[in-house]
């Protein structure tokens, strides 16, 4: 049995490294158990009078047990497609979203623009809290503009 101890140790380590991530994923919040509720959080960027051509925001849960379940595009045609995000954000509570449009000013939205909707799953009794940070916003020339990011939980029908 101990003729090739190196292979034996390799086998043990390989087995452990396969089991470790499985064990970690088994410690996910209780949302996996089927309890909890779904909610949709609309994200907005207010660009004032300037047509919004590009944005990058960071959305995160600050309270409660929250898991991001899906990302949806915005309302305006320029941002209808789902924004770019890291797939690793799914099942977590933080995501960075980015989108842009190379359309002309006339086709770009301005004012309060719904850029995306984040679908979440909330577990536990604690009311969730959220934070939305604006990383960047730009006009059609790529110049940074002053803008404000806000969010609102969509009311359930």
């Amino acid at each position: 049995m101990t003729r090739n101890p190196g292979f034996a140790s390799f086998g043990i380590v390989a087995a452990l490294s396969l089991l470790l991530p499985a064990g970690l994923s088994a410690q996910q919040p209780a949302a996996e158990e089927g309890r909890g509720r779904f909610a949709a959080i609309d994200l907005f960027v207010d660009s004032g009078k300037t047509p919004l051509a590009a944005y990058q925001v960071e959305f995160m849960a600050t309270n409660g047990v929250v898991q991001i379940a899906g990302i949806e595009g915005g309302e305006a045609a320029a941002f209808k497609e789902p924004p770019a995000y890291d797939p690793k954000a799914m099942q977590r509570d933080r995501v960075v979203l980015a989108g842009f449009s190379t359309s002309k000013d006339a086709a770009l939205p301005s004012g309060i623009v719904r850029i995306a909707t984040v679908h979440i799953r909330v577990s536990g009794d604690r009311a969730p809290g959220f934070e939305l940070r604006l990383h960047a916003a730009a006009d059609s020339t790529g110049r940074r503009i002053a803008a404000k990011a806000t969010y609102a939980e969509r009311e359930r029908p």
């Binding site: 919040p29 990058q56 898991q67 890291d86 954000a89 977590r92 509570d93 933080r94 995501v95 960075v96």
Partner: peptide, 10 residues
């Protein structure tokens, strides 16, 4: 640009 450097808090 959107990569989560250290992952979420979960």
């Amino acid at each position: 640009a959107v990569r989560l450097e250290k992952g979420g808090r979960s």
